[in-house]
Computed example of a mutant assay.
Amino acid sequence: MQEIKVELTKNPKEKPAPGAPLPFGTIFTDHMFIMDYDLGQGWHDPRIVPYGPIEMEPSAMCLHYGQSVFEGMKAYRAVDGRILLFRPDKNMARLNVSNDRLCIPQIDEKFAEKAIEKLVSIDRDWVPSGEGASLYIRPFIIGVDPHVGVHPAHHLMFMVICCPVGAYYPEGLNPVKIYVEKNYVRAVRGGMGYTKTAGNYAASLKAQDEAEKQDYTQVLWLDGVERKYIEEVGTMNVFFVIDDEVVTPELQGSILSGITRMSCIDMMRHWGMKVTERKISIDEVARAAQEGRLKEAFGSGTAAVISPIGHLKWGDVVMEINKGEIGPVSQKLYDTLTGIQWGKVKDEFGWTVEVQ
């Protein structure tokens, strides 16, 4: 395993005061991790350096052809002061899935985990302790060849930056309003929908802008072919509680395999609940809502953890779910997941990793 060189900042930044607002993705810690890739040499020169601008030529391929992938994960300050990561092995495995699709060389997953642990350990004083706050960790890889031409990059950078954050949605755990997109599509099978790559999010901007104009928080995407099967929310996987069954769209190549999604499914099945991964149409959800059988809907993701859905707008149809209030399944999942992440609940599953 390569040695990670460390250069500590000589000008540490002022940290947010306890209890101060932590708007998502705007405040960054003192240090970042960088590792380079060069064809014929492989991944090399891993280092932790002061956070700051990077030098890149205007012809860098990532700026023109979008060869970039990323992950999203968090570090939590447990009630006893320990710093915990949540299933980092799954994030690094998924990063390599994205790498494969974007023709990016595979990373050593174990080494990447250790690099992240080391970075978080160095910046451990940045991990907030306020209720619901955490340190968001953003690993990403970009192609930096100074070349205007379409081919897989021969020179890349793997970087990790961190930022202390509060709740992702302004509503917090209060149910959000979701807009079902009918005109635009984000991904199709055979495309890149199952990866975390910049292009997927660029494809969502137009619909997100339209949703916000109508005072909706996020977009729920339908499949790109028949425009009727539910896929995912822009930043979350999605679940529906219909009668006594929890239904979530199956993974078939056009939606992201969420780490929180996986954890929710494992947890609910552990509790003896009926959880089904299958195709589910917006018509089925609308019928269930009309018949009073749609008991809950919620999203899951690293940023929001669990986000109950109180309103779903599909064309002229507006579905109010559970009277616009959080339901018992959403609440139990949120309490248990965050309990494990913050060390308040025993981790029966072995999902947390302590940062030394």
Rank of each mutant, 00 (worst) to 15 (best):
H151D: 06
H151S: 14
H151A: 15
P152L: 12
P152W: 13
A153F: 11
H154P: 00
H154R: 15
H155T: 13
H155L: 01
H155Q: 13
H155Y: 04
L156G: 03
L156R: 10
M157Y: 12
F158N: 05
V160S: 03
V160D: 05
I161E: 00
I161Q: 01
C162M: 15
C162A: 15
C163N: 13
P164Y: 04
P164L: 04
P164G: 08
P164K: 03
P164S: 09
P164D: 03
V165W: 00
G166Y: 06
G166A: 05
Y168N: 02
Y168I: 03
Y169L: 06
Y169P: 00
P170D: 10
E171N: 10
E171C: 03
G172F: 13
G172A: 14
G172T: 08
G172H: 12
G172V: 07
L173S: 05
N174E: 13
N174W: 05
P175M: 09
P175S: 06
P175W: 12
P175H: 09
P175N: 09
V176M: 03
V176D: 01
K177N: 12
K177H: 14
I178V: 15
I178S: 02
I178H: 04
Y179H: 11
V180C: 14
E181S: 02
E181T: 00
K182W: 02
K182G: 00
K182M: 07
N183T: 04
N183F: 04
N183D: 12
N183A: 08
Y184S: 03
Y184P: 00
V185R: 11
V185P: 00
V185S: 10
V185F: 14
R186I: 05
R186M: 09
R186P: 05
R186H: 07
A187K: 07
A187E: 07
A187C: 07
V188Y: 08
V188D: 04
V188Q: 07
R189M: 12
G190L: 10
G190I: 09
G190K: 09
G191A: 03
G191H: 01
G191T: 02
G191N: 01
M192T: 15
M192L: 14
M192I: 15
M192S: 12
G193H: 09
G193S: 09
G193Y: 11
Y194I: 02
Y194Q: 11
Y194D: 11
Y194T: 01
T195N: 04
T195I: 07
T195H: 06
K196T: 08
K196M: 10
K196V: 07
